[in-house]
């Protein structure tokens, strides 16, 4: 059974994914689409037929986006810069979180008596798990869940932008505070001096490997996720 609202939602999504169209543009065209559907319904067409005719008359997503992109050039650059800045902030947060989580895990492992080899593994695994976890959440929320547009809409309001940026900065500060003061003080008090030296050594090894692996991983991701030229799809 054809569900008109579902079809319109799918159509909206295909337009929203095009970089040239802003949310307000898509909303305006949806209002047009629904006017057209109502008009065609009066001519005794089925929902599916009205939807097909109406979307055909509006034009295909790629060429619409190309026209909108010409008008929205400034907004498009704002959008790109927003995501670059958001990416940098989130990366700083992930890095800081990974640092504190790995330090906490290594301290716990040192107390329970792991050797320096084991500590290196623990430090590395804790970092990888934190990064992986945050990336997984971001992927679920932004790419699959479609929250990206909501974040952007929130950031478009002045207080929303302050809230978002402020929230991330507070989280970075908080985890930095834990990383620099709380966890090291706990480690000093709880771990014997010799073990503490092992801990520091293995933390260095782990972060050395890490600082080589992360740029490599990001480079691979960038190559994998690079944008395709939209104009060539389906033409």
């Amino acid at each position: 059974m054809f569900d008109l609202n579902e079809a319109v939602a799918g159509w909206r999504k295909s337009l929203t994914q095009q970089e040239g169209c802003r949310v307000a543009d898509v909303e305006e065209m949806e209002s047009h689409l629904r006017d057209e559907v109502e008009h065609l319904r009066a001519a005794n067409l089925s929902d599916e037929e009205t939807f097909l005719v109406a979307t055909h008359r509006l034009g295909d997503a790629t060429s619409l986006a190309r026209e909108f992109a010409k008008v929205n050039r400034g907004a498009i650059w704002g959008y790109r810069l927003f995501w670059i800045a958001a990416g940098l902030l989130v990366y700083a947060l992930m890095d800081s979180l990974a640092g504190v989580v790995s330090l906490a895990c290594v301290t716990a492992a040192a107390i329970s008596g792991s050797g320096s080899h084991g500590l290196t593994m623990v430090s590395f695994a804790a970092r990888a798990l934190t990064f992986g976890g945050v990336l997984f959440l971001l992927y679920k929320g932004i790419i699959q869940g479609g929250c990206g547009a909501k974040f952007y809409a929130l950031a478009a309001k002045p207080w929303g932008a302050v809230l978002l940026v402020g929230g991330i900065l507070v989280l970075i500060l908080l985890s930095g505070f834990l990383h620099v003061f709380i966890v090291p003080i706990a480690a000093f008090r709880l771990v014997e001096v010799e073990r503490y030296a092992h801990m520091s050594e293995s933390a260095f090894y782990a972060s050395m490997v890490w600082s080589v692996l992360v740029p490599l991983l990001l480079a691979v991701l960038m190559i994998k996720l690079r944008p395709r030229k939209t104009g060539e799809v389906g033409e």
């Binding site: 543009d25 305006e28 065209m29 047009h32 057209e36 008359r57 509006l58 034009g59 060429s63 619409l64 026209e67 909108f68 010409k70 008008v71 929205n72």
Partner: peptide, 15 residues
């Protein structure tokens, strides 16, 4: 007109 093309025209006039 391809109906959708009107909107970029309107937005440009608004700009």
């Amino acid at each position: 007109w391809s109906d959708g093309m009107l909107y970029p025209v309107l937005h440009r006039l608004e700009h």
